[in-house]
């Protein structure tokens, strides 16, 4: 059942990309793309896909949209932060690596969290080990894991928990 969901998602992703790439659509092209995407999604040796962990309830889809906005806001803020630090004549940095604990259990959730951390103000994920994420922080405000967790992952975790636990 779980692989069926992953297969459907893979089919939709592949066909969607195909439709975008063949932009002025014709029926024949769309059908050929659908057949090819179906053949790939129906492969007998289907590797276990992280897409299995995606939840598809209406609430989760709503949270995906909200998450996109939170992510874009964080991306813009992080760029303004980079601009400030790079253009400041004294380079106000005090880098360090702090440990952060996540509540997310699925690989997809941790992947998305690590990617989001990399694109938020002043932080880059260096390493993940189980539920520990090691984060390079350009200006360490708090080396204590609990406080650092609150400061770095607090925003994203509550969305990602609903989207992919």
């Amino acid at each position: 059942m779980k692989t069926l969901k992953a297969r459907v998602l893979v089919f939709l992703t592949l066909w969607g990309v195909w439709l975008v790439l063949t932009a002025p659509w014709s029926v024949q092209e769309a059908a050929a793309g659908a057949v090819a995407a179906f053949l790939i999604a129906a492969l007998p040796f289907f590797p276990s896909s992280p897409l299995e962990d995606l939840r598809l309830s209406p609430k989760a889809l709503l949270y995906v949209v909200a998450y996109a906005f939170v992510f874009l806001k964080a991306l813009v803020l992080s760029n303004l932060d980079v601009a400030f630090r790079v253009l400041h004549p004294k380079l106000p940095i005090a880098p360090g690596i702090v440990k952060v604990k996540t509540k997310l259990k699925t690989p997809l959730g941790r992947l998305l969290l690590a990617n989001s951390i990399t694109l938020t103000p002043g932080t880059i994920t260096v390493e993940t080990r189980g539920q520990d994420l090691y984060v390079h922080w350009i200006k360490v405000a708090d080396a204590d894991p609990v406080a650092a967790t609150e400061a770095i992952v607090g925003d994203f975790e509550k969305y990602l928990e609903v989207i992919c636990g």
Binding site: L75, V82, I124, I138
Partner: peptide, 26 residues
């Protein structure tokens, strides 16, 4: 341009990554 300046100005590889990744993505 900001990310290029960051790559040139920042003191070590980690900090260059900070500028190089975020600014090029946006």
């Amino acid at each position: 341009l900001l990310s290029a300046i960051g790559l040139l100005r920042m003191p070590d590889a980690f900090n260059r990554m900070q500028a190089g990744t975020k600014a090029t993505t946006l």
